[in-house]
């Protein structure tokens, strides 16, 4: 390579390096971060809530920090770009709320709290949220686990024995679709404590999806797998729990996921109706008092909890099925 070539390359290298750095810094998410900060600092029309601008700025910086963390930790270019896109959407949403409430005062100020205030309340109420979470998790854990340990073995046996299946399947079609919410008032009266009735409702709600999916999985398992097991002379217990259950695990997991979703819904509904603690109770209680900042903060917290639980559930599911690739 001649001298002229070397010099040319060096110039190009410098230029493109700066260009890349500029491109990376001034991408969409960061631009919106700056825009939203500017918006936060501008004066607004609504007087009530102006003192919460600091909390809003804190929130914006938090979102930006999460985004930057994503950029550093993720290696995949496509994932980096989606992180950027999602962050832009979040910023737009926050800016929209801020515009509608504090800045332009277009929304009824009692019903729609200012974003900054929601952040402030959220941080303040974290201990209370923790207590409510514990209470809710107890009920959820008990009801869902009960559903799993009864539905799966029952479904395996019933799906496996043709005669039982023929007898039980029609009943399943009738009882399964009944929304468990309708049992709530009756269950509250019959069962001794509120905790009992909540656990019962959650159990019923989670039981049916797990049961139905497991039965169908058992009924439809590939004959070849069954034949391979039969020629090894397995007994019925081994056939059900060591062959069929792992063999139909995708079906079981989809049933379990549905069951989990129903559990969340029913838990919150049960708490709203008759509880004195828990996350659902929290939202209803403060809604009754028209304390909407707390209501919104509560809803956001519930969203975070559900997302976290579902995320760990999916991690567990991946581990159970790690033989598949």
């Amino acid at each position: 390579m001649n001298v002229y070539g070397q010099v040319k390359t060096l110039k190009c290298f410098d230029y493109s390096f700066i260009r890349t750095l500029a491109g990376k810094t001034f991408n969409g998410a960061n631009i919106f971060f700056i825009l939203s900060m500017i918006l936060a600092l501008m004066p607004g029309k609504r007087i009530a809530g102006m003192e919460y601008e600091l909390y809003l700025i804190g929130l914006l910086m938090f979102i930006e920090a999460v985004y930057l963390l994503n950029l550093i930790l993720r290696k995949d270019e496509i994932k980096k770009r989606s992180a950027g896109d999602i962050t832009v959407i979040v910023f737009i949403f926050v800016m929209f709320c801020e515009l509608m409430t504090t800045k332009l005062n277009l929304m009824e100020h009692l019903l729609f709290p200012v974003p900054g205030k929601v952040v402030a309340v959220f941080i303040n109420e974290l201990p209370e949220f923790g207590r409510c979470l514990l209470s809710s998790l107890q009920l959820l854990g008990a009801g869902y686990t009960l559903a799993l340990v009864t539905a799966i073995p029952l479904a395996l046996v019933i799906g496996w024995r043709k005669r039982l299946f023929a007898a039980v399947n029609p009943m399943t079609k009738v009882l399964g679709p009944i929304p468990p919410i309708v049992y709530i008032p009756y269950a509250i009266v019959i069962l001794p404590t509120f905790k009992c009735s909540s656990i019962f409702i959650i159990f019923v709600g989670a039981f049916w999806p797990i049961f139905i999916n497991t039965v169908n999985g058992t009924f439809n398992i590939e004959k070849q797998i069954i034949d391979s097991a039969k020629v090894l002379n397995v007994n019925e217990r081994t056939m059900l729990f060591e062959i069929i259950l792992p063999g139909i695990m995708p079906s079981v997991i989809s049933g379990a996921t549905l069951g989990l979703v129903f559990s969340f819904i029913l838990l919150t509904a049960a708490e709203m109706i008759g509880a004195s603690s828990g996350l659902g109770w929290y939202v209803k209680y403060f809604s009754d008092f028209a304390d909407y900042p707390k209501v919104v903060a509560g809803i956001i917290f519930i969203g975070i909890v559900v997302t976290a639980i579902t995320y760990f559930f999916e991690l567990f599911e991946k581990r159970l099925l790690n033989w598949r690739n």
Partner: peptide, 19 residues
């Protein structure tokens, strides 16, 4: 019925994929 005195090898899926 089936018995331990006979071993069988099928064309496909003799093995259990999760083990």
């Amino acid at each position: 019925g089936t018995g331990n005195e006979r071993g069988v090898v099928f064309q496909h899926y003799s093995l259990f994929p999760w083990m």
